Amino acid sequence: MLQLVIVTKRQVEQGPTASRAAAGIRHLRRKRGWTLDELATRLADAGHPLDPPGISRLERQERRLTVDDLVALAVAFDTTPAALLLPDTDNGEPVPLTETTSGSFAASWQWMRAESPLGEPEAAEEAVPSVRAVQFAEENHPDRPPGSRHSPAVNDMLQRAVQQVIKELERKESDDDGR
C-alpha cells in the first residue's frame, strides 16, 4: 500500500519583534541588492553558515530567528542588531516590542541604544534623573568607567543636581553663620 504524505510550509508563530526582524532582513538584503547566495556567503564569512534556503525561511518566518542568527546577520550587514529589530521610520504608531509592551518610535530606539529605560517619562532638561534611569545607565554601559556610565545628558543633569545641592548647603551655612 502506497501512502502519500503532504508537507506544507507554515509560518512559525513569532512575536512582533521577530516578525519585524524577518521583514527587516529581507528589506535590508534587497536594499543592498544582495541575493540569498551573497548573504549566505557573508554569514559564512562571519562564522555563522546559513544556506540560502535557510535565509529564505527566516525571511518568510518559516524558521525561528535565533539570537546567534540575529548577531551574525548584523555582522554580515555591518549594522547593529537594533537596526534589524526596530522599524527604520516613524509611522506615528506605537512600536510593539512584545505582545503586551510597546513604546513610541523614539522611546524604543532610545531604549534599544541603552539611552533610557523603556517607559521612563521624559524629564525636563534641568530635572534630576530618576533612580531607575541611573540604575539603567549603570547596568547597560559596562564599557564606561563606573560613575560615568550615563549618557552625556544624564551626566549634565547629575552635575546640575550636585550644584543645586552645594548651593543649598552653602545657603544654609551662610544662614547659620548669620545667627
Rank of each mutant, 00 (worst) to 15 (best):
R60Q: 09
E13H: 13
E139H: 08
E139T: 01
D143S: 09
G147M: 08
G33R: 11
L58Y: 00
S174D: 13
S130H: 04
L39Y: 07
T17Y: 01
L97G: 04
P146A: 06
A44D: 14
S104L: 06
D68H: 15
A153N: 06
E125D: 15
L86E: 12
T35P: 08
A123S: 14
S148A: 11
E99Q: 15
D78Y: 07
S148F: 08
V12A: 12
H48D: 04
G47Y: 08
R132K: 12
E138V: 09
A153Y: 02
Q11W: 00
S56V: 00
L43C: 11
F105D: 08
A123N: 05
A40I: 01
D78K: 15
S116N: 06
T66V: 01
A106R: 15
V75Y: 09
S116D: 08
I6Q: 13
Q163G: 05
E173W: 14
V12S: 05
L86N: 09
V7S: 12
P121Y: 08
R57P: 00
T17F: 03
E168H: 14
G178K: 14
R179V: 04
M112G: 04
D69E: 04
V154L: 14
H150C: 09
K172C: 05
V134Y: 00
R149W: 03
T17A: 15
R60L: 07
R10G: 11
R149D: 05
E170H: 12
L58A: 02
E139L: 13
T79C: 15
G92H: 06
K172Y: 06
V95H: 06
N155M: 10
D90Y: 10
V71R: 11
F136D: 01
P81G: 12
R29F: 05
L86V: 08
A107E: 15
Q14G: 01
R42T: 00
Q3S: 11
R179T: 04
V67E: 13
Q163F: 02
L39M: 11
R60A: 09
E62R: 07
T66G: 10
P81C: 10
S19V: 02
L158Y: 02
R20D: 00
L169V: 09
P87E: 06
T100W: 14
V128C: 10
V134M: 10
I55E: 05
G103M: 07
T41S: 10
A127D: 15
P81S: 12
L70H: 04
L169N: 11
W111D: 02
D45Q: 13
P117S: 03
A21G: 04
L36P: 05
D88N: 14
P152H: 06
L158G: 03
G119Y: 05
A76L: 11
D51R: 11
A44H: 10
A22T: 01
F105C: 11
P121K: 12
A82P: 03
T17G: 03
R32C: 06
R29S: 07
H141W: 02
S148L: 12
N140I: 00
G147C: 08
S102I: 01
Q159L: 10
N91I: 01
E173P: 02
V67H: 13
T101M: 13
